[in-house]
Design a binder for these strands. Sequence first.
DNA 1: GGCCGCCGGATTTTCGAAAATCCTGTGAAC
DNA 2: GTTCACAGGATTTTCGAAAATCCGGCGGCC
Lengths: 231, 231
Amino acid sequence: MKERDEARVAGGTLAGDAYAAIHRAIRSGELAPGQRLRFAELQSLCGMSVTPVREALARLTAEGFTISDDHRGFRVAPLSLAELRDIVANRRLLEGEALRLSIQNGDAEWESRVLAAHHLMARVPRERDDIPSAMREEWDRKHAAFHRALLSACGSPILLDLCEKLFVKADRYRRMSISIPGQSRDVAREHEAIMTLSIERRTEPAVEALRAHYQNTADAVQRLFEDGRED
Amino acid sequence: MKERDEARVAGGTLAGDAYAAIHRAIRSGELAPGQRLRFAELQSLCGMSVTPVREALARLTAEGFTISDDHRGFRVAPLSLAELRDIVANRRLLEGEALRLSIQNGDAEWESRVLAAHHLMARVPRERDDIPSAMREEWDRKHAAFHRALLSACGSPILLDLCEKLFVKADRYRRMSISIPGQSRDVAREHEAIMTLSIERRTEPAVEALRAHYQNTADAVQRLFEDGRED
DNA sequence: GGCCGCCGGATTTTCGAAAATCCTGTGAAC
DNA sequence: GTTCACAGGATTTTCGAAAATCCGGCGGCC
């Protein structure tokens, strides 16, 4: 079995690796919004030929992370305040409904998943700007896991998938909000409230707390946009 | 400028043509649910080399129309009663909200678009089984246009996009329902009711009519499933 | 008999180069 | 001075073949 420098995931394809690498670079901002993507650069970034890179871009384009201009190449999808608002509005709708269904259908095991995921997230320290980025990524992962756990009992694979896709889309914007200095609101308290209300099966208060949580996040990022774009 | 037998769309790419051709074949049932997709066959179907076909499959897979098993090829995504139910449940949620927003935001031009689209659809005769398939396709197009017009004023590009994707996903199931013999319910009347209520800005009745419309369609197809799978 | 490992064909996946297309800047015509 | 056509280079897109992987069957071994 041949091994490459950047060993491919066992059993996977190079195209899959390219997808993961480019996706990650876009989410992290390493590839900036609107930036043109040249095959030569992506090939050296991924360490492979043009074919799998192109396949990765086809997938990314189908998911809206990149944009394809026929015969003129690809570029990273731009960010905009309008899109941020739109994403949040739809997350409020979709995740609100998903949480409602989860509370309705969730069993004791669901409760314990939520509790466990919240605990793991709360244990990761998340103070101010000067935290190491490795720890930030760790918190991001736990945060995502917590939200997934919340919705995990909704019983609708499609709804879950839509929520997941919007979550990832929102990630590029969330990244901006970490640079906000005086995080006045208490994210941890919001999370805790959502968790408690959910487990206590107080459906509508829980849903409302989740929706408010998204609105708050959006408002914070929106302020950033208005004070001139980042970079 | 070189021209091929199956002339590519002006300015487009072969990969784009392959995507359209395979997508169409799947929607029409020419490529059956679950069927394995061999590159040799697809190449002769599309009349091109493997690379653009593969790119098309990557896109289709990202959208859920095909499934990729690494190193084992692709197959058409299967249909199931569970998925049908899930699609309908989510369409009720999403299109319901989109219609609500459309009624809220729509101006006179929106009203006229809805009216016009409904008229075009109503003019296409749609009797029983023995209608020519060309006419059925015509009706399908008008039907899709009517639903799009209804939601077109919702103001949320993302919500519109999600609705469109679910609509296309549902299309494969809708195709089954045409073979239902005693269409007892009156689809035309349902459409008319939705249109009238919407234009009269009777928001909640309109939304409820739309949601019932989907539920009825789903129930009809579901009966088909239970009487043994088609084919 | 049942199970494991290996061989050969079928198929997918990737490569490197050829073909097609786009972009830039130069120069001629008006 | 402006416009237009058109080379020349850069870039994307596609091809055909090579490499990698999978599937099925055969033979040896326990």
